[in-house]
Design a protein around this nucleic acid. Structure first.
Lengths: 110, 110
DNA sequence: ATCGTTAATCGTAGATAGACGATTTATGGA
DNA sequence: TCCATAAATCGTCTATCTACGATTAACGAT
């Protein structure tokens, strides 16, 4: 048995072409990090479903303390995926379409 | 000024429809977590570009200690995105196509 | 059977996440 | 002006990540 089968993961090799040479690992990792927690994914999906949402509603929709939700929102804001706009004593959150598209683009380009 | 403009994030409301009611936050968060570090994104992109790759090559391609790369690989394996196959004293890694598709699907469905 | 190579695991240290309650800040209304 | 509400920040705790060197385990080859 010379060379030994060497299936090694069955390597499909179906014309894959390293879609975008350097995937900008930093950028994608930053976005991924933002949605790397179930609570943040849920917040994001709520915002996507409603187009926009007041912070208090998010707190009510989550089984977490107000301060905790606020921290998750901060992380989402830091990633750029979400933006907040002060509306009187409340704060209205929404998804930043450009950043959100960019995230999808980066994942799709993988 | 009654009612006060209330732009609030300019709510585009372009027929968005909450693509998949409950996005399975846990599942997406798990995948996102796996690629929430630049080193892991890079490993993943290397594997995608080469179809498969021996661990040692990955270590050489990264500016990290062998043990650190091994840990990142472990995290990627735990997420299901990557699988390893023992090939003699070496280990050959590759992307799990099904899981990888699932990740893309989940993100695209957001 | 022993040796060399490859990769996983162990053990450690420092940094950061995640959760909460308590407090502060900001705004609108009385 | 003072009060009530909303949300951010602070302080604390525990748990986990990240990185590394050192060690162990697995395998081929001699």
């Amino acid at each position: 048995m010379a060379a030994k089968a060497k299936t090694c993961c069955e390597a499909p090799m179906e014309g894959r072409m390293a879609s975008s040479a350097s995937v900008n690992a930093e950028e994608l990792a930053k976005f991924a990090w933002a949605i790397a927690h179930p609570a943040r994914v849920k917040i994001l999906s709520i915002l996507l479903a409603r187009s926009n949402c007041v912070c208090g509603e998010l707190v009510d929709a989550m089984p977490l303390a107000q301060s905790t939700v606020s921290q998750h929102l901060k992380i989402l804001k830091e990633s750029g995926l979400v933006q907040g706009e002060v509306d009187g004593p409340k704060v209205c959150y929404c998804v930043n379409p450009a950043m959100f598209s960019r995230l999808k683009e980066l994942v799709a380009a993988l």
